[in-house]
Write a protein that binds this DNA or RNA. Structure first.
Lengths: 257, 257
DNA sequence: GTTCCATTGGAACGGCGTACCAGAGGGGCC
DNA sequence: GGCCCCTCTGGTACGCCGTTCCAATGGAAC
């Protein structure tokens, strides 16, 4: 592998797997998933396909590397010393992924695809480990570690995916006010559903219009955390504080744009 | 199947959008996501691309239609008269989707992609409605309906996606015993992770080897249900039974292959 | 100075989704 | 019954994609 840390070769700006992945992420961010082509990549890097294929096996590996890089960055932002409760730590990790899918709308679908292609890759254990440590810190019995952490991870991935969906669609409507317009459109669409087939969905259509994504995401996290902490004490009420909505998370005020 | 219609000009077996979608689902099931091409479709239906494009706008719409058809079928299997508790109903709906992603390994990634492309399509409200009715039946205050149902849906989608991942990879190893071998491979891979970076993941590697997918999925559902039912009674213990693991769900024995 | 080889970039290939089109059939009108 | 028109068909062609192959480059080793 090109671990050769040599200096400038032919090009002054050495081509490296790292630079290629970085360019791929930028391309994905600006042009969407279909915007990442080897031709666009060769143009941006001012090179040819052969040079890229020297560092990367194929497009699948390139997508996996881009996904892994973004996830790793999202999980690495943990502030070095923030001795919050395990619940707060879970919220921080989850919010990191949540925000990553907001910044990179292609991430959610890519995560699903990558997990289904190669579940033993690096990205799943990375997330699993970050969440699992906090589950352990919550005092969950060891026999439930796997189940509890999996449930948490599944919720986070599902919710992040949904949010990426909304964010992407809102962006399509235009920046700035796009999000409000998008929620209004969804709300209106739901209100227009068949009353016989979709009574419940119609009933909550109004709640869609003015909910806050982060708050809703964190509320879901707290639902799962409530279920997980209920696993801890076989008897006697839990001494650990029960998760309260937005508890101690003043660090993440909703972006009141 | 492609009835060998000699060189008949006008076909007797009418081509319809329904037949095309059906063929697309079969193609996806047998050959995976990359197996669905218009060329393969024209061959299987013994026709040309133009005929298909007359009924379907493009490949994206075809994929959406296939996804929608499969999800609709999965949600339609509700036994007409099964007056179980709301918890049991939630489990039944969730298991329907879970099993659909097992039978159609391409479904999970496709759901994520479709939701991110067009969140106001038919598939999201369909799932949302099925789950939401049970949330309402649980006695959740109306102000929490949207949050609770969303959390449930996100967990189900995330977990189903993960399971499809595992199922797909297990199938690649071969039918029958493939699943046990796959779990063993993942478990071994996790045990081989860096002890400094992945202490938790290594610690639960053993639990991976012999867990049951459905049981784990239902346990996660129950975690979320516990959190949701905790929303119901501002005071006084819930009169409804608290969700117990596998409570009353003897209908779904683990497939002890 | 010569050799070597890791690296580069361009040309070419097969397959994909899709646009386009010449016609075939059958139902509605006379 | 004859005609026409409009729905529907299946073939051909195009442009872009991922990928392969290969001649050429130029610093490093001797």
């Amino acid at each position: 592998m090109a671990t050769r840390t040599g200096r400038s070769q032919r090009r002054t700006d050495a081509l490296s797997r790292e630079r290629i992945v970085e360019a791929a992420v930028e391309l994905l961010d600006t042009s969407g998933e279909s915007g990442l082509t080897f031709r666009a990549l060769t143009e941006r890097l001012a090179t040819g396909p052969g040079a890229i294929y020297w560092h990367v096996a194929n497009k699948t590996e390139l997508l996996d590397a881009a996904t892994d890089a973004v996830v790793a960055a999202a999980l690495a932002v943990r502030p070095s010393e923030s001795p919050g409760s395990p619940q707060d730590e879970v919220r921080a990790v989850a919010l990191g992924l949540f925000e990553a899918t907001e910044e990179h709308p292609w991430l959610a679908a890519q995560l699903a695809t990558q997990l289904s292609r190669n579940p033993s890759g690096t990205v799943a254990p990375r997330i699993f480990e970050s969440l699992g440590r906090q589950v352990r810190a919550l005092g969950v019995p060891e026999g439930h570690w796997f189940t509890a952490t999996s449930a948490l991870m599944h919720y986070v991935l599902g919710a992040a995916g949904q949010n990426a969906a909304n964010t992407g669609s809102a962006r399509a409507l235009g920046p700035g006010t796009g999000r409000a317009e998008f929620l209004d459109a969804v709300s209106t669409a739901w209100e227009g559903l068949d009353p016989g087939d979709y009574p419940f969905t119609r009933a909550v259509a109004g709640q869609v219009r003015d909910h806050d994504d982060r708050e809703q995401f964190l509320a879901g996290i707290d639902l799962v955390l409530t279920g997980i902490t209920a696993l801890s004490p076989p008897r006697e009420a839990s001494p650990a504080e029960k998760p309260s909505r937005r508890g101690g998370a003043g660090r993440y005020p909703p972006p009141d744009e």
